[in-house]
Every structure is written in C-alpha cells, then in structure tokens.
C-alpha cells in the first residue's frame, strides 16, 4: 500500500553489464583463437559454428529438449515434495532425524556414474530412472536447507507463541516454516543448478531421447560442434530455471528487501 521498496530504474540492468561484458569477451577470445590458429573444428569448433549448428539442428534439439525438460520438472517436483515432507517429519521427530540423517548424507556420497547405470538397469529406459536420478541429486540441498532453517527460528518468537498457547503445529506454520524460507531458497538455488545436468546424465546412460542422447550420438560421430550446441541448450535451461527461482525468491522474501538493506 504505502511505502513500496524504492525502485531504482535501470539499476538492475546496469549491474548486469560487467557480467555480459566478461561472457562476451570470453567468447570473442575463443572465436579469435580458433580463427587465427586454424585448429580443426573436429577438435575445437568456434562459437559461431556452434551457433550455426543450433540453428541448423533446431528441430532435433527442440525434440530432444522436451524429454529432458520433462524429466527435470518431474524429478524436481518429486524431490521438492520428498524434501519438504521429510523435513516436516524430521522437525517433529528429532529422534527420527538422528536416525535417518546419516542415510541421506550417504545417499549424497554415491558416485552418479555408478548409480545411474544401476537405476537405468532397474527401471528401464523410460522416464522413471531419470526422474529418480534428478530427485536423488537435488533433494539433499533442499532438505538440509529446510532442516537448518527450522532450527534457526528465533527462540524468542517461539517462546512468544508458546506463551499465547500455540500448539506445536501452529508454531511450525507461523514461525518455523517462514523462518526457514531464506534458507530454503539458498538450497533451492543449488538444487536447481544440478537438476538439468542430472537429467542429461541419466539420459546419457540410457534413454530413447533427450539432450543426453543428442550429446552421446554427437560424441560418437565426432561432432564436438553438435555436442556444444546441446550444451548451450542445457546451460540456457539451467539459467532460465535459476532466473525463475530468483524471481520467486524476490516475491516470497519481499519482507527482506524492505528497510535498511538494499
């Protein structure tokens, strides 16, 4: 209503300039190097060639982006649900937390190269193994973030709610859960950057379609330009997902943007 966050027009864009400059100059150097050295495109294709490949193979890339996106979203949805559900259980039952937490830590020590083929072996070439692998990779940062976030609740706020006669459930809903949100978004940002990569890796190990399959086939036919084209698509996907989380965070954590800190 009154006093909205002061908007400084153009400031967000202006802050992006150094990043854009550094990325552009990196690609420029790459391009110039390839042209001057005359290195074979079978070893190192120039960025311009990679871009050409994206345009040329846009139908192939698009058809194979959809399965990857599907696996990413399904896996992430599963992971988010499991992480949140588990975090609530663990918060209400500290004993269970102590019993189960080591298992979750161990689940993160499993090398993906070893696990992925097994999961494909068990669940076949369909969506299921990809979803499971994406979930396995992404759930832990969110779970840890939530559990830590609950624990970081201001004890005075909890005391206050207890003095009001609040139940454990009310305290969770009104104090512990909102307190965990900044932590959760930190975990979410880490998870989301793993999600697409995990889906591609799962496809690489065994699938019918997907960016992972494009990369596998391109590699086998000695087409680094097409490999990199798929990489560009995958990075773009991750960046878009990252941007969406950042936007969501801005909305949910609006209260942190007010007051003193810019």
């Amino acid at each position: 209503m009154q006093l909205d966050t002061p908007r400084r027009p153009g400031r967000g864009l202006a802050r992006g300039i150094p990043a854009v400059l550094s990325v552009v100059s990196a690609f420029l150097i790459w391009e110039i190097y390839v042209r001057l050295s005359g290195i074979s495109p079978l070893v190192l294709p120039a960025p311009s060639r990679v871009l050409d490949q994206i345009v040329l193979n846009r139908a192939l890339l698009w058809d194979n982006t959809l399965p990857t996106l599907k696996a990413t979203f399904a896996g992430f949805a599963l992971s988010l649900t499991v992480a949140f559900g588990l975090s609530v259980v663990l918060d209400f039952m500290p004993r269970v937390r102590r019993a189960l937490f080591p298992i979750f830590v161990v689940s993160q020590t499993l090398p993906l190269v070893a696990i992925a083929p097994l999961v494909v072996l068990w669940f076949g070439f369909d969506l299921t193994p990809k979803v499971l692998l994406v979930a396995l990779v992404t759930f832990f940062p969110m779970l840890v973030a939530l559990v830590d976030g609950y624990a970081a609740t201001d004890p005075e706020i909890e005391d206050l709610m207890r003095s009001m006669g609040a139940t454990r459930g009310q305290i969770f809903r009104s104090a512990r859960f909102p307190s965990a949100m900044p932590y959760f978004f930190a975990g979410l940002r880490i998870s989301i950057t793993y999600a697409v990569v995990a889906a591609i890796f799962a496809e690489y190990v065994g699938a019918r379609a997907g960016l992972g399959i494009v990369i596998l086939n391109a590699k086998n036919s000695f087409r680094p330009d097409l490999v990199l084209a798929a990489v560009v698509i995958s990075s773009t996907l991750t960046l878009i997902l990252f941007a969406i989380t950042a936007l969501l965070q801005r909305v949910v954590l609006r209260w942190r943007d007010v007051g003193g800190n810019p």
Partner: peptide, 12 residues
C-alpha cells in the same frame, strides 16, 4: 506476554 525484545516476526 510482552517479551523484552519485541519478537515481531520480520516476515509479517
């Protein structure tokens, strides 16, 4: 109960 520090919830 009014605690010594206000214990206002910053997100509300």
């Amino acid at each position: 109960f009014m605690p010594q520090r206000d214990a206002l919830m910053p997100w509300r």
